Computed example of a mutant assay.
Amino acid sequence: MKTSVFLSYPKPFTKQQKQFVELLTQYLEKRGFEPRTLGVTDYDMDAPLKAIRRLMLESNGLLAIAFRRSYIKVGISKPKSDISEKENDISDTWLTSPYCQIEPAMAFQLGLPVLILRETGVLADGILEKGVLGTYMPEFSLNNSFDVYFQSSEFLH
Rank of each mutant, 00 (worst) to 15 (best):
M106K: 01
D147R: 14
A124V: 00
S91H: 07
I116K: 04
P104T: 12
W94G: 09
I102N: 06
S141V: 13
Y149K: 04
V122M: 06
A107P: 12
L128E: 00
A105Q: 14
L95S: 00
Y136D: 06
E129K: 14
V148K: 05
F146L: 15
T135G: 10
I116G: 10
P98A: 13
R118W: 11
I116H: 06
Q101N: 13
N144E: 15
Y149D: 01
L115I: 14
A124Y: 01
M106I: 15
V114C: 12
I127W: 02
I102D: 09
S91W: 06
Y99S: 13
M106G: 01
Y99W: 15
V148Y: 02
Y149H: 06
P113T: 08
F108K: 13
K130N: 11
V132T: 08
S145E: 10
L110K: 01
N143T: 11
A107I: 09
C100Y: 00
P98S: 13
N143C: 03
L142G: 06
F108R: 11
W94F: 14
P104L: 11
M137S: 05
N143R: 08
L110V: 04
F146K: 05
V132A: 02
M137Q: 15
E129S: 11
D92Y: 04
P98H: 07
Y99M: 15
L123V: 04
V148D: 12
G121C: 04
F146G: 02
A105Y: 10
G121R: 03
D92L: 05
Q101C: 04
G126P: 11
I127D: 03
F140H: 07
I127G: 02
L123G: 00
G131N: 05
K130T: 10
G111P: 13
L117D: 12
L110I: 01
Q101E: 14
V148A: 12
T135W: 00
V132L: 11
Q109S: 15
F140K: 03
L95Y: 09
S141L: 06
L95W: 08
P138C: 11
M137E: 06
P138Y: 08
D92Q: 14
L110W: 01
P138I: 05
G134W: 11
E129A: 14
M137I: 15
G131A: 02
I102K: 09
F140P: 08
P98Q: 13
L123D: 02
A107S: 12
D147T: 14
G131Q: 02
R118N: 03
P104F: 10
R118C: 11
P113E: 12
L133K: 01
D125T: 07
Y99G: 05
L133V: 05
N144P: 00
L142P: 03
Y136N: 04
A124I: 02
P138D: 05
L115N: 13
E103G: 08
Y149F: 15
N144W: 02
G134L: 12
E103T: 07
I90E: 02
I90L: 05
V114I: 13
T120I: 13
G134Y: 11
F146D: 04
T120A: 15
Q101L: 08
Q101V: 02
P104G: 09
L112S: 05
L112Q: 08
T120D: 14
L133H: 05
L110C: 03
E103Y: 03
Y136E: 04
L128T: 01
A124C: 08
G111F: 03
